[in-house]
Write a protein that binds this DNA or RNA. Structure first.
Lengths: 130, 130
DNA sequence: GAGCCGTTTGACGTTAACGTCAAGGCGTGG
DNA sequence: CCACGCCTTGACGTTAACGTCAAACGGCTC
């Protein structure tokens, strides 16, 4: 239980996060350039806090789900819309996202079912013909 | 119930499928160039059968799930691996895919939960402050 | 203070997944 | 026969999401 647990800390260098999540520093800078991250600066050097790290985790999860950085950016804005957003406008956007995600969930569950069926059929063939 | 039901037929032109699924003919040709489709030919003209159409449906579902065409290609090979594959090799690949898809399912469910939570919190704020 | 490490910006290269012409073949309706 | 529509291949353009240098700066350490 030690492969990646630098979690209680509050300050991170760019290389820390890159190493922890197995991505390049270039990628992180790219996310900042696209407005998905906005770390503080000490001089020119980027300093990441837990909040930035949390956002990065969301970014990477979004990528695993196949979203574009543009989509992920919108998605992130739902998270820190604590104040700046109109409440009803926020819930509208959230509902929109939810509908899309639930459709994706259907696709995913269908795919999983199909693969399980394929696996089962293969098992049966194995039983017949060794 | 008529928006897109040309389903009992067996022969399709490229434009038929393009229109039915809201994609370009260029995309379909591109999928063929990548080996995901292999329609018959009459002269130079592509002729798609139900089997090709079914594969296209799988391709588009894969895209909605965020997969690359390369991934989708591997995925398709699991479907028509009726004969040409070794059974244990097939089930191994299927298991691999399943594990990945189930991980994605986790990500997706987490995301949906979070958005529902955000929505709920927004609703509460609305209750407080109109 | 010379080297080394980690960092920065900037610029150019790369891959995937198409879009967008261009130029031409095939059938058919007037 | 000729235009029209649909099809073909081929070539080049485009966008996203980085990778890959290059040149330079800041801090440590010996």
């Amino acid at each position: 239980m030690n492969h990646a647990a630098p979690d209680n800390r509050d300050l991170f260098a760019i290389a820390d996060l890159a190493k922890e999540f197995g991505i390049s520093t270039r990628a992180i800078r790219f996310y900042e350039a696209k407005g998905l991250l906005s770390p503080e600066r000490v001089g020119a050097t980027r300093i990441f806090r837990r909040r930035d790290r949390a956002r990065l985790i969301l970014i990477l999860r979004g990528k695993r789900l196949g979203f574009s950085l543009r989509d992920i950016s919108d998605y992130l804005s739902l998270y820190d819309a604590d104040r700046n957003q109109q409440v009803h406008l926020l819930t509208a956007k959230v509902d929109e996202r939810l509908a899309s995600l639930e459709a994706q969930l259907q696709d995913l569950q269908t795919t999983i079912k199909e693969l399980r069926e394929i696996r089962k059929l293969a098992g049966e063939r194995l039983g017949k013909a060794g």
